[in-house]
Nucleic acid binder design. Structure first.
Length: 195
DNA sequence: CATGGGATTGACT
DNA sequence: GTCAATCCCATGC
């Protein structure tokens, strides 16, 4: 595996069409404090389709989604879990990439403590699991992904090594037919059902 | 102000 | 396979 240094992603990276960013993000690095992981699964959400929180327009909950790209949208799911998104597209468009799974890269012992689990492939194999493992909570909502507590970095692996599969998004009832989920096929850190 | 529904997970049958 | 936990917030009266 060719290894390379992960360079910080600039705000311009997130300003592109959300489907393009969701696919490009596979292989990128997410870091929070001493913990970091490689993105192996994402989903795209856009205000034009009903599954996106921004579909209802600008509200206290969704105003972050319509704000400038390159910020974190973190919300509470099922009253229990914090889910991490990267706000995309130009300001005024409500769109984001949901980070659904990571391959643990750094701080694995700390992740094990936070998750109460040992198996590396169980630490970040779901959107609620990875925020628990990295210690990301609702306080990170609205913070910059460029120079805030949670940061994104470029892929650590050469592009040809990153295989990409697409399929329908998980756990939604509206617009459930759109193939806006992207994942590294066969990667053990991807959530179920794997692509 | 009351209600209801989740972009989930882990435990259990 | 089923199901409960738990809370934010959009919606409607």
């Amino acid at each position: 595996m060719a290894s390379r240094r992960s360079a910080p992603l600039g705000a311009i990276y997130f300003a592109r069409p959300v489907l393009e960013v969701a696919e490009a993000m596979l292989g990128c690095v997410v870091r929070h404090g001493a913990t970091a992981g490689v993105i192996v699964e994402t989903e795209a959400y856009h205000d034009s389709e009903a599954a996106c929180h921004a579909h209802v327009g600008v509200t206290p909950r969704t105003h972050i989604l319509f704000g400038p790209p390159g910020r974190a949208y973190v919300y509470r799911s099922y009253g229990i879990h914090a889910l991490l998104n990267a706000v995309c597209e130009p300001e005024g468009v409500g769109a984001a990439v949901l980070i659904r799974a990571l391959e643990p890269l750094e701080g694995i012992e700390l992740m094990r403590e936070r998750r109460g689990l040992e198996r590396v492939e169980d630490l970040c194999s779901g959107p609620g699991k990875l925020t628990q493992a990295l210690g990301i909570e609702l306080r990170e909502n609205g913070t910059s992904l460029v120079d805030g507590p949670v940061r994104f970095g470029s892929p650590v692996r050469a592009r040809p090594e990153i295989e990409i599969g697409a399929g329908p998004r998980i756990g939604i009832t509206k617009a459930a037919d759109l193939p806006w989920r992207f994942a590294a096929p066969g990667n053990r850190s991807v959530s179920r059902p794997r692509l």
